[in-house]
Amino acid sequence: MDIFRTAWPDLVVRLDLWHFMRRLAVGVTTDTHGLYATFMGELSAAIFCWDKSDLNLLKEAKRQQLIQANITDPSDSDVSVRIDRKELSLHCRRMTRSTEVIRERIQAVLELFGGDSGRDTMGVPLFHERIWEL
């Protein structure tokens, strides 16, 4: 490793977020655990958010679509429920949250799934003990 520091003293290696998420997933007992997909979804939501201006434009377009379908004065929840994941990814940019927010949210996700709510119906925990070392 010292060879790299001498040859490239200004080299900075960064881990992209997808690989970071996969590294945390190493602390999971198995990817077939019943809560694995939910955990990965919550982990993703802790890191990424939708661009608010894009999301507001999509909600307004969906509201107009509902009005044209004779749904008078749709509520915000009516509009949000009818926006699917495909529409979000097609029309809205995803952004990463601030470092502090990501850190707080990941900690909350780990604590949530590290407790009793992180066990499947057979009582098998989602995490190995090593999750806290990761």
Rank of each mutant, 00 (worst) to 15 (best):
I3N: 11
I3W: 08
F4E: 11
A7R: 14
P9Q: 08
L11M: 15
V12D: 15
V12I: 15
V13N: 10
L15M: 15
D16R: 08
L17K: 08
W18K: 14
W18G: 09
R23G: 13
A25E: 06
T29R: 04
T30P: 11
G34Q: 10
L35I: 01
Y36Q: 04
A37N: 12
A37L: 13
E42K: 07
S44F: 15
S44A: 14
I47K: 04
C49H: 10
D51T: 09
L58K: 09
E60C: 02
K62T: 15
R63D: 11
Q65P: 03
I67A: 11
Q68G: 08
N70Y: 12
T72Y: 09
S75K: 14
D76F: 05
D78L: 05
D78E: 13
V79H: 12
S80D: 13
S80W: 00
S80N: 07
V81P: 07
D84I: 09
R85M: 00
K86V: 10
K86Y: 07
E87K: 11
L88E: 13
L90M: 14
L90I: 07
R93Y: 07
R93C: 04
R93N: 12
R94S: 08
R97D: 06
R97C: 05
R97T: 04
R97Q: 10
T99R: 06
V101K: 09
I102P: 01
A108Q: 04
A108S: 10
A108K: 02
V109I: 10
E111P: 00
F113C: 03
F113H: 03
F113Y: 13
G115A: 02
D116W: 03
D116T: 02
D116C: 08
D120Y: 04
D120K: 05
T121F: 04
M122W: 05
M122Q: 11
P125G: 01
P125C: 03
P125W: 01
H128P: 01
H128D: 00
E129I: 02
R130G: 04
I131V: 13
